[in-house]
């Protein structure tokens, strides 16, 4: 017998898995658009440390001369991104799930402990509910990033009609840079997320598809000559 615990509600699983291909298309079509004016780099003066992006990168992915295709995809899939994101935030608010995701007073301090733990520099994790403190900060951060991408995107898309928004975000050229930086952050979030999911293992990944996780059996009791009641989960020593 196995003890399972409900982890992710059905709605959140749908939002999550719809979001994945939608963001993939947004980043891909964004690249097709960005190529037409690929001015960003990391460096100072004449010194460039990192160019966004090297020609070999464009060539390998067949990106050049696809601006029109990129724009048409971007301005269609933006609707799926917006609607899915809006419903997700609405669901968090109504269901109360936001309490499990938004950081609380302890999150900042605890997230540091989580990072140390993940880097094997500290034993033991602070007590947590559904998500640890670092996850709370990351998952809330990514919601804020999504809202940021939406607003900066709208501001580049219609800078004259939404001129107040555009001015608030620092003007047309700044807004484009912000939109780009947010995309880079999304990509970094994605990479870290994948690494963490791989490290967390099958039980955790299955949870995002099935909704439940198997609760590991409690450690076998130690010491004492008293009679033990052997729980069902201790009888079966099979792994998850």
């Amino acid at each position: 017998m196995k003890k399972i615990v409900k982890k992710h509600p059905l709605a959140i699983r749908w939002f999550h898995w719809i979001n994945f291909p939608v963001i993939a298309v947004m980043v891909w079509s964004g690249l097709l658009i960005y190529w037409a004016n690929d001015v960003y780099k990391v460096g100072w003066g004449d010194k460039t440390i990192l160019k966004f992006f090297p020609d070999s990168f464009y060539k390998a992915l067949h990106i050049p001369f696809r601006l029109a295709e990129g724009m048409s995809l971007h301005f269609v899939f933006m609707w799926f991104f917006t609607i899915n994101g809006f419903l997700y935030v609405l669901y968090l608010a109504i269901s109360g799930e936001w309490r499990l995701i938004f950081p609380n007073r302890k999150s900042l301090k605890e997230s540091w402990q989580v990072v140390l733990h993940d880097l094997h520099l500290r034993k033991g994790m602070p007590p947590q509910k559904k998500y640890n403190a670092a996850q709370r900060i990351a998952y809330t951060g990514v919601i804020i990033m999504g809202i940021g991408s939406l607003l900066t995107g709208l501001s580049i898309y219609k800078p004259v009609q939404f001129h107040t928004l555009c001015a608030m975000l620092g003007g047309y050229e700044w807004t484009r840079a912000e939109h780009f930086i947010l995309t880079i952050l999304f990509t970094l979030f994605f990479l870290l997320h994948i690494i963490q999911v791989i490290l967390a293992g099958w039980n955790n990944f299955r949870g995002m598809v099935t909704g439940f996780e198997v609760v590991p059996p409690p450690p076998p009791p130690t010491g004492g000559g008293t009679m033990e009641i052997i729980s069902p989960s201790n009888e079966l020593k099979t792994d998850d």
Binding site: M1, K2, K3, I4, V5, K6, F212
Partner: peptide
């Protein structure tokens, strides 16, 4: 109420 005991077979089926 979020927890449940199920058999291996049920677990496999759900998955």
């Amino acid at each position: 109420d979020k927890e449940k005991i199920i058999s291996e077979k049920q677990l496999r089926k759900k998955t």
